[in-house]
Amino acid sequence: MAMVEGGTRSRLVRHALICGLLAAIVFPVYIAFVTSTHEASTMLQGVIPLLPGPDLVPTYARVLATGIPTFGDLPVATMMLNSLVMALGIAIGKIVISLLSAYAIVFFRFPLRMLWFWMIFATLMLPVEVRIVPTFQVVSDLGLLNSFGGLIVPLLASATATFLFRQFFLTIPDELIEAARVDGAGPIRFLVDVILPLSRTNIAALFVIMFAYGWNQYLWPLIVTTDPQMTTMLIGIQRALSGSDELTPWNLVMAMSLLALLPPLAVVLGMQRWFVKGLVDAEK
């Protein structure tokens, strides 16, 4: 009986701790939501309401259609589209390039292949912030400023994804490779019919991570874009907070911030099963 009571008490403590941590995470988001449903003047009264106000639909319709006055009334829908194209381009591009790179390193025999792999892996020590000046110069010389190409192409290479795909490919049994060779499968067919189906969970997990990485980019879009029509969500939020000497319209800023959460949240929830399986599958 004592052991049962101790186990029950332990579970209650764990559940209480989880609920407390969840509340600590969710409560600021809830306050942002409540703020977005009230007039901006309500936030200046010194007391933040805890219940939603009557301006939910007008506030979100306004920021999506006309934007925020302190940032030139650029529609948030345009910013979201820019960020979405950038995030999808980076995620898909990183996965394709990394998968093909790992495939070549593992399944092809060519001179200095391990040297090339470790050179790719060494780029982990050179994030975009370190190489931002020469990268900007190359993008400028290619005429890619203020374009999706300029936003996406310099961020496509991923040593992390290449390493993860390589480690997975090394676990593929030699018998499977020999069976495919006996069946007459060439490199392309082996990649499409064998490697890609086996890599689905890895691809899903990396897609979620890389999408969030692309969506949350701040420094590179800030440098490579000067056209307001190419503004991404994070840049828009920052400029909405410091765009002028006027009072900050906190209801609009909070609505914009919550809208910025939706695409990454949708990706995580939509691919949750594949994402978790890709991270914890014992065979991976």
Rank of each mutant, 00 (worst) to 15 (best):
G7E: 12
S10H: 09
H15I: 09
G20Q: 05
P28C: 11
I31E: 11
I31F: 05
E39A: 13
L44K: 07
I48Q: 11
L51Y: 12
V57L: 15
P58A: 02
T66E: 11
G67E: 11
A77P: 05
A77F: 07
M80Y: 06
N82G: 02
S83W: 04
L88G: 04
S98L: 14
L99C: 01
A104N: 02
F110D: 01
M114G: 12
F117I: 01
F121G: 06
L124W: 11
V130H: 08
I132Q: 05
I132K: 06
P134E: 02
F136S: 00
G143H: 00
L145G: 00
S147A: 00
G149W: 08
A157M: 06
F169I: 01
I172L: 15
P173I: 03
P173R: 01
P173V: 00
E178Y: 00
V182G: 08
A185D: 03
L191K: 02
L198T: 01
S199W: 14
S199I: 09
R200H: 10
R200F: 10
I203K: 08
G214A: 11
N216E: 01
Q217V: 03
I223V: 14
T226M: 06
Q229W: 12
M233L: 14
Q238Y: 05
Q238G: 02
Q238C: 05
G243T: 00
T248M: 03
T248Q: 04
A255C: 13
L258I: 07
V267R: 00
M271H: 03
Q272F: 08
F275N: 04
F275P: 00
V276P: 04
A282W: 15
